[in-house]
Amino acid sequence: MNLVETPAEAQKNQSYYNALVELLYQFADDDFIVSFRGSEWLGLAPHIEEDVAFSSITQNTMGHAFLFYQLLEDLGEGSADSLAHDRSASERRNAVYFEKVNGKGTYVEEPYYDWALTVVRQFLYETFKKVKLQAASRSSYEPLAHTAQKILMEQPYHLAHWKMWITQLHGATEEARMRIHSRLEEAWREILDALELGPLAEEMERQKLIKKEKDLQEEWQQSVEETLGFLPNIPLGKNLGNGRAKQHTKDLEQALATLTEVYVSDREAVW
């Protein structure tokens, strides 16, 4: 397999290019929305130490989104900032489960957020992100491989953090165990699109941009089971929709309205 070393080379082959940008949008949009849901927690985490740790992870995750948007910018998709701030919900590829609100209320008013949802979601997300990044670190598109390798220098620490939380809560009080279980089962019904590569999955694999979807999913399941010691006994589903196919819920619109509020107030201004 020949490596594609530059954006210009990638642009020469239309089907390669299409599959590549599709994959990059998934990476970027996932990190962008996961970071947003994390930043809503700021000042509301169970204790101060967690606030410090979680906000550091959230900040790194936004940094990862930035790196992926930059790869897209280099490929001629538009500026990283406009890709992050100026695309409607119907253009986004993030998995729907990641856009789901943290709980009732908003981040400035009456935020009844659920820590169990957050622990489960972050754990499942970071587990998959590691699997996906490891595959991308051997991608035929060298700039992606390099970015994945770079992110993998810090991302496993994020995963370790959430592994600690989920194991600790699951092994603690009956209430904590029940809350984690219930959120895990909910996740199982909603997370499947996150584990998919979308409509261009086959082309991505054919072009050696990333591994086969099924292999990624299996590795993810194995890793989740290794940590938890069990898996929910229900089939994986995407009950909220398929984000990879650009289907989204109102929750994403709420998130985007906040994330882009200042940017869209004047797109030409220097901020």
């Binding site: 930043s39 959230t58 940094g63 900032d81 400035v108 906040t258 200042v262 940017y263 901020w271």
Partner: peptide, 25 residues
């Protein structure tokens, strides 16, 4: 925090996130 997600560019988002994290620290 009210302005963390609203920061108008990716760089500003990262800057204000780092700042508020420091304050918590």
């Amino acid at each position: 925090k009210e302005w963390v997600p609203k920061a108008p560019t990716l760089k500003r988002k990262l800057g204000i996130m780092a700042k508020v994290q420091d304050e918590m620290g």
